[in-house]
Design a binder for these strands. Structure first.
Lengths: 333, 333
DNA sequence: CTGGGGGATTAAAACGTTTCCACACGTCGG
DNA sequence: CCGACGTGTGGAAACGTTTTAATCCCCCAG
């Protein structure tokens, strides 16, 4: 409970509080001899700077906010790992918010972040309403969109091309000779699901197929269990030659249900997922998937955010669009 | 950038800043009429309280720290979800730290948390050195251990009985008729791995087997890839009748390698994991596992921490030890 | 009619840091 | 030898809130 402040350090080192502050923030500005004396005092007293006082006076903090849709999804976990690594390297703390798909919860989280006066916010928005984010900007909080294209030009965003991904995925499936195709997707309120579907249709058109022939099965959640259920429908109604799933969790569920029903993968049906989570490679019939640079997504978004915060004048807003990469495995051999 | 403060609100509502503060913190103390006037001013100006100023003056913040060993592990992800939910319900923000198994990184993270003057810290310690945590306590920061028994009596801790878990797991395997047993584990510097092994040995003894006969395969990491490698060793050296893995990721790797080698599970070998992550049920041969109340672990730890912070006088420190639960599936049918 | 009591509100002093400005001191060019 | 300059340090104000003690006002008992 020993509240040791900068004054105590100053007293012990025989300097003024201002000098201690200089040692902390601009060590170059202070003579080596005094600096050493101050540093000695700091470690002797076990002084640790009061972040809130610093934030209050300086007008900005050393924390950023991270708001994701589902912390339980390995995709976001990896993003978070990238964010955390960069932030920690640069001495920033990360405040985590899990919107769990609810716009209300996201709003509550953003409010907390605003109160904390975070330096900036990394967000995978769960809705499509840019207004809430603009409110943050009015409070001087920078916003970088993660896994989402930019809402506006004066803003950074890091995304992955979901249309191209859907297109490449389906092109791969059709390249295996399949002519009938099903798309197992999560809720079509989710941007990613819609765009991957658009890509799929483009690939069908390019292959001379009618995109209207795409059989879409919309699951309520993007989980393995939902995938199993979807596969049940497909089995009941007659299997297509290829199945494209909007993410790997769905695909793993589909795979399991198919194998249970005696359907062979890839002999009877070729199947692929999306995201290339670790389990895609580890499943018994290893799963073809679209790899996204997940960890990099988090890293780069954080670097952009912190650059925007630390170098506001030289900072150039960027809209980065990664291309996903096909990883072919047994399920489409 | 409109820095609207409590003073602006006070001016607009025609009251003093102190009254605005009262509206914010003890609404009961202020007359309904004035309260309404103040609230109207607040929303008209879009005022949001400056958390740092509040923390500085009040001497405590509305944030807690969460330090985990591996944010990529579904086990910790679920814990984090529990923590986040409770914290968010009670208006606390969560600062996330990922130690990635490194004591250095953990120390850096703890330092950041100390600077932020978090109200308390939830930690799954990566080392066994309680001294670093005591340092936090000296700064008036409460610490609750998660998935780890208490270091000291005047401290809360929420853990799961790993010895009992190991024992129940192996008892189950031996109950299937197996007499030879292998234990595939992560690094034996990890407490959980050691305790589950001790439990395994107790079960062997109880079944009249010599615990020295337990074949221990120590993997470098607790991942599916490492599990595959370990299974390779087992196959090469002659398979036991049962395999107990220290977590599900290892078990899934083992499973995959066995199936690849033409070993049937459970006919030739019975196999089980630990943690009961979602993928355990979803894998092609569904995996028997020990379920831990992961989400609850996070919830309860957070509730204890916030109780300790908010009611320091009535708070009773608790050492909670959950019992894991066996979930039998195909891999030990 | 007066004095006292209690509820509502205010004024002002903190909290620990940063930052701006001024000052001291030594150095160097003229 | 003097004045200007630059480097290093000290002093003090300010950041926005909370909190304590004091004040105000109204009402009621005496």
């Amino acid at each position: 409970m020993a509240m040791v402040s900068i004054k105590d350090v100053a007293a012990l080192a025989g300097v003024s509080p201002g000098t201690v502050s200089n040692v902390l923030n601009r060590p170059g500005k202070v003579a080596p001899a005094t600096r050493e004396r101050v540093e000695a005092a700091i470690s002797e007293l076990g002084f640790v700077r009061h972040g809130s006082a610093s934030t209050l006076r300086a007008g900005h903090s050393r924390t950023i906010g991270l708001s994701v849709i589902d912390i339980g999804n390995p995709f976001f976990t990896e993003v978070a790992a990238g964010v955390e690594d960069v932030a920690s390297e640069l001495g920033y703390a990360v405040i985590l918010g899990n919107s769990a798909g609810s716009t209300d919860k996201e709003d509550r989280n953003l409010r907390v972040l605003a109160e904390q006066r975070v330096r900036g916010v990394l967000i995978t928005p769960s809705g499509e309403d840019p207004a809430r984010l603009d409110r943050l900007r009015e409070h001087g909080i920078s916003v970088v969109l993660v896994d989402h294209p930019a809402h506006r030009p004066d803003q950074c965003a890091v995304a992955v091309d979901d249309v191209a991904g859907g297109r490449a995925a389906v092109a791969h499936l059709l390249g295996k000779g399949a002519r009938s195709l099903a798309y197992v997707t999560g809720p079509l309120t989710i941007r990613q699901c819609v765009e991957r579907r658009e890509g799929a249709k483009m690939a069908m058109t390019a292959a001379g197929l009618d995109p209207a022939g795409l059989r879409v099965v919309e699951a309520a959640t993007m989980t393995a269990k939902a995938g199993e259920k979807a596969a049940g429908e497909l089995v009941a109604d007659g299997l297509p030659e290829a199945i494209f799933c909007a993410n790997d969790l769905l695909a793993l569920g589909v795979l399991r249900a198919l194998l249970r029903s005696g359907v062979r993968v890839p002999e009877d049906v070729v199947l692929m997922g999306y995201d290339d989570i670790d389990f895609a490679a580890a499943s018994t019939v290893s799963l073809t998937s679209m790899r996204q640079p997940t960890y990099q997504l988090g890293r780069i978004a954080t670097e952009l955010l912190l650059d925007e915060c630390d170098n506001p004048d030289t900072h150039a807003h960027q809209h980065i669009m990664f291309q996903p990469e096909l990883v072919a495995r047994e399920s489409t051999q």
